[in-house]
Structure formats: structure tokens, C-alpha cells
Design a protein around this nucleic acid. Structure first.
Lengths: 209, 209
DNA sequence: ATAAGATAACTAACCAGTTAGTTGAAACGT
DNA sequence: ACGTTTCAACTAACTGGTTAGTTATCTTAT
């Protein structure tokens, strides 16, 4: 039996959702308490003030991501296969925990001015995982020699952007019926793998790999 | 001689910066007034309340982008050349008006719940421009047949993500000195063109294994 | 076993500070 | 004269954070 969701986890879940929906400034501590079904004072008793709450949420969310990603990158297979697995895992993560990319997106937009250094450090760990994989691919000749950090950001950026725009695409679809609908997870990952690995340009001839 | 920056433009510039830095909820109306160098009452006299201010900023910013993009896509050249030009223009835009992508990023993160329909409609116009170009490329056989909306979002997402993460990369560089530094604009556009058009995978034809 | 005491979990009510928005009068420029 | 702009004061609503006090749970001594 797993450690049945502690009160702290319940609070963190509620906070994560509220921060994702409204941002740090827009989030209401009272609303987080209400979502978690506890008294507001309980938040301060269990976790701390708004900023501490925010940091705790980010740390937990990044922990989840890095755990999931490390599993895929340490697996066997070619660099390409592992990158595809990574894109798949990333897509699954943002699908399972949609709060996280939304919070990170806001943080990026703000220039990370209020991102605690500890969280920034944790972020860099995740970057390194992907960067390592890309560097391996370049070394083995599977990948072209593109800047690994920029490539990493493009990969993550595309995944996050595509998943985060799902609601907006939904609203757009109401306005303009013929625009395409949000796709299921699997299709999104497949699309991204194809685009990022093989590019948009049509190949003169499809030779084997 | 252009219509020397009207008082309204000055206010809109100040508001754009404030909204970009702090988001809608975090933005302070008094601060916008101070930035614009006018009295707070002037804001309400010239534009309106906070929400109206926000909408006005978004509309003006999207106008700029669509104007710039339409020029590149209606130019002569192959679909590939025009896509490269578009990526270049997009990169230049986010460089020249960095507020805009930051505001849009936050809007995406929030699920566009407080995005006025008129702004959403303007956004879709921009999407259509790029989508049209992609569709042309597919028709002419230059591009592979990938979902044009998803491709568009990947292109824009990568540009926005890469430019918006520049400050965060700067902060990261302080923490971990060996991480790569922010690149100049031209390199960023070139990198993106290469990655998106030709993909990450090494081509068998080029050099080979 | 049980009364007494200690500790942890929890709550309702409150407070001090902030913020969007308003108003009315005065100054400015043309 | 008239549109524009400044200014300072004001308020009504809200929000983060605190605190004094309550209930539940566990120890322990007898």
C-alpha cells in the first residue's frame, strides 16, 4: 500500500492547479485552501507562506519529470529511439500533469525573476539529461551537430507549446469550426518525433537508415 | 514622418512592458502610469480600465506581427525560402518587441480564459498566414504532408520559446558557467530553419555513416 | 483501567496593507 | 473658451498572513 496521499500532497495538488490556472500573482491562497478542502491556516501550518508553497510545488513537479525522463534516457537503444522515447515520455508527462508546463511557461514569460535558485538548479538537471542524450547522438553520428541546448529547448518547447495550446485550440475551434481539433497524446508525440528528427522538407529520396 | 508617438501609444507601450513582466494579475495600474510618465487618471481618460488596457495592448501587438508576417509570406520564392524568411521575420519581431511573446506565453498558460474573443480572432489570422504557407509547400511537394496547424505551432513555439528563455538561460549561465550563452538573433533563426526544415537526424546522403 | 497532562491537528475571526477605480478642482496650451 | 492633463485624496473591496482558541490523539502515572 502506497503512502496514501498525505495532507501535504493534497495541499500541493491544489496549489499546483491554482498556480497553473492563475499564476503566482493571480493565485489566491484562500482558493488553494478551499480546493484542498482545508482551512487557510492549515496551509501555513503544513507548508508555509505563498512563496514557500510555490517553491514546494515546483520542486515536486520537477522531481516527477526528471524521474520519468531519466528512465527513458538510460534505457537501451539507438539515440534516435531514445529521443523518440523521451518525446513520448515528455508528452505523457505533460498530459498526466498538465499543471507543470503551464507554471513553467509563466515562469519563462516572467524571465524567471521570481524563480528560487534551487528550482532553477533542478531545472538544469532536467536540461542536462536531454543534452546528454543529444550529445551522444551527435558523437555516434546519428544526429547532426546542432547546438544541444538550443535543440533541447526546441524539443521541450514544442512539446510544452503544443500541449499548452490545447485549450486555446479548443476555444479557437468554437470560433472557427474548420480548424483542427486537439489530437490524442500518441499522435502528438509521433508528429513531434517526425518533425524534429526528419524535418519538414521533403526528402529527395527515402533511403534506408 | 510618422505620427509622432501619441499619448495613447506611450501608455500602450508602458502597459505592454508591465503586462509582459508581471502578467495581468501582477501588473499594477499605478506602475503603468508611472512608466508612461502620466497621471493614473490619464489612463482611464485615454484608454480605459485595466482590462481595456490589456485588450488594446494585445490588439496592437498582434497587428504588428501580422503586418510583418504577411509581407514575408506574400513575397516571391520557394516555400522553403519563404518559410526561412518567415522564421527570420518572426525572430526579428520577438527581438524587437519582446513584450508580445511574453504576454502571449502567459495567455497560453492560463488557457486563454481571459482572452477577449476579438484578440483570439486576430490570433487565428496570424495562424492562417503561416498555415497557408505550409499548405502551399505541401502542395508543391517541397514540404512533407504534416498537420499544418501543429507544424505552425511548432515553428512559432520554437521561436517564442527560444527567445523567451533567453533571460532564464542568462540566469542559468551564472549558476553553471559552462552552459552555453544566449545567441545573437541571426544564429537563432538559422538554427531554427535548419532544425525545422531538415530535422535532427543525420542524412545518409550527407557524409554518411 | 483511567484520569491527567502533553502534543499535534485544526479552525474562525481578524488585521494591516494593497489595489483598481473615481472624483472634483486646478493648471496648461492653443 | 475648451480639450487636455495633473494632482491629491478617497473608498470599497480584497488579500496575505496571524493569532487565540478548540478538538482530537497519544502518553503516562497510578
Amino acid at each position: 500500500m502506497e503512502p496514501t496521499q498525505t495532507p501535504r500532497d493534497t495541499i500541493l495538488d491544489a496549489a499546483s492547479t491554482e498556480f497553473a490556472e492563475r499564476g503566482f500573482a493571480g493565485a489566491r491562497v484562500d482558493e488553494i485552501a478551499a480546493r484542498a478542502g482545508v482551512n487557510k491556516a492549515m496551509l501555513y501550518y503544513r507548508v508555509g507562506d505563498k512563496r514557500t508553497l510555490y517553491t514546494a510545488v515546483l520542486m515536486r513537479n520537477f522531481d516527477r519529470v526528471s524521474t520519468a525522463l531519466e528512465q527513458t534516457t538510460t534505457a537501451d537503444g539507438s539515440a534516435r529511439e531514445r529521443l523518440e522515447a523521451l518525446i513520448g515520455a515528455l508528452t505523457r508527462m505533460v498530459h498526466q500533469y498538465p499543471d507543470h508546463p503551464r507554471i513553467v511557461l509563466r515562469e519563462i514569460a516572467s524571465g524567471a525573476v521570481n524563480l528560487p535558485p534551487e528550482v532553477l538548479a533542478r531545472m538544469l538537471q532536467v536540461v542536462d539529461v536531454v543534452r546528454g542524450l543529444l550529445a551522444e547522438g551527435v558523437d555516434s553520428g546519428e544526429f547532426r551537430d546542432l547546438d544541444p541546448v538550443l535543440t533541447h529547448l526546441s524539443v521541450v518547447g514544442a512539446v510544452v507549446f503544443l500541449s499548452a495550446t490545447a485549450p486555446i485550440r479548443g476555444r479557437a475551434a468554437e470560433l472557427v469550426p474548420e480548424s483542427s481539433l486537439p489530437e490524442p497524446t500518441a499522435d502528438l508525440a509521433a508528429f513531434l518525433s517526425t518533425l524534429l528528427l526528419d524535418g519538414l522538407a521533403a526528402k529527395p529520396e527515402r533511403g534506408g537508415t
